[in-house]
Design a protein around this nucleic acid. Sequence first.
DNA 1: TATTGGGAATTGGTCTGACCAATTCTCCCA
DNA 2: TGGGAGAATTGGTCAGACCAATTCCCAATA
Lengths: 215, 215
Amino acid sequence: MSLSLVETVSRRIIGLTRTSRRLPTERDMSAKFGVSRSVVREAAKRLELQGLLEIRQGSGMTVVDKLHKPLNGALSLLVPDEPQRLKQLIEVRLALEPENVRLAAERATAADVKALTACHERFEATSTFEEQVEADMAFHCLLAEASGNKIAALLIQSLSELLQTSLKHGYSRVTKDLAVADHAKILKAILARSPTAAAKAMRTHLEHARTDLGL
Amino acid sequence: MSLSLVETVSRRIIGLTRTSRRLPTERDMSAKFGVSRSVVREAAKRLELQGLLEIRQGSGMTVVDKLHKPLNGALSLLVPDEPQRLKQLIEVRLALEPENVRLAAERATAADVKALTACHERFEATSTFEEQVEADMAFHCLLAEASGNKIAALLIQSLSELLQTSLKHGYSRVTKDLAVADHAKILKAILARSPTAAAKAMRTHLEHARTDLGL
DNA sequence: TATTGGGAATTGGTCTGACCAATTCTCCCA
DNA sequence: TGGGAGAATTGGTCAGACCAATTCCCAATA
């Protein structure tokens, strides 16, 4: 069973994404690969759905790195009900994130720590709810990156985006200061290279978040 | 900003997937929706990539329920190196699965328990490595289902399939009996409605698995 | 000289119809 | 009744035309 043309062209386009932020046009790639424009379209659309490209009519194709996007789509389809999805998202984070920060306490690089610290300071300075959610989620994503586990990082990125989307509908934060304090404890534990303290602080933080959201 | 035709047709096709296991042909849907065949193709291809359809040349389109597939694809692209991916998969499972079985101990239905028991017995009866891996992974997927958290279930399904794919390359099991005993302990803890014991048993099991794989 | 607006060019989105490749169905023969 | 061959069906690819969104370029005005 040989590869379909679309699959073959998809792989060739992935090769192109490795060397340039902008891709040739559909027509150019069609000529270059010796296939019809519809095959190029299908291949490109596949890569768009996989989070590797962004395609704009009249503008062309940009290479992006959003491999978590497919999971966003899948989870939205899986649990269409938003409150229910929010509840399950929190549960999964309660599983994943303590372990992430435990690993982060062991593995975080100087660059990780620097990014986390900067993000934490940014969070402290936020004023609108939207800014708070964004900075909060960004901190969590950086923690997952610091774990050194790419799969965990992708999962958290997806979960965080879905959470952000859900939180845009009908929620408000009354306890930002508590979250800031929680994050500080997590960061402190990581700086101290104390996995157990980091995991404990994260559990506490997520339970606070769960309470905050009335779940 | 209005929906593209492809997006609109995708949604209409999703509607069709709710009522039938087989879909009309591209040509039929093209006529029915009043759009060109290429739009129907793109819409159908999107749903295929999302794990909702299987499309066969000459045969047509079958509705499936494989929402975890997009994540499989994403993770394969994210961590192309198989040993590295295996390592990270185990780490993520070490985070997710103890929490899954903790919830399962609280929430498992009679049907969950029945399915787990049957799966466990099937695992005991396996002889080839391939059968063992399949039954092992099936047990884990059922545990995640029993947690009542659909998101967790999807994640475990994806991780399990990727694990299975990886294990097809150059691994062999020398400690099936240990795995069977581990599973029995997990099942027993769930039957006893003991979340703490279940989580502990799962951690032990996964550490055994990690050792087994030499990671 | 710099900025803005309008029109042309470019790029993706959709359409149509033709033809190719894989699967299924039907009919006929042993 | 079962198997094989050919026809029909279904998805995969091609080519070219046209539509819709964006970018680019040039000219006019401040």
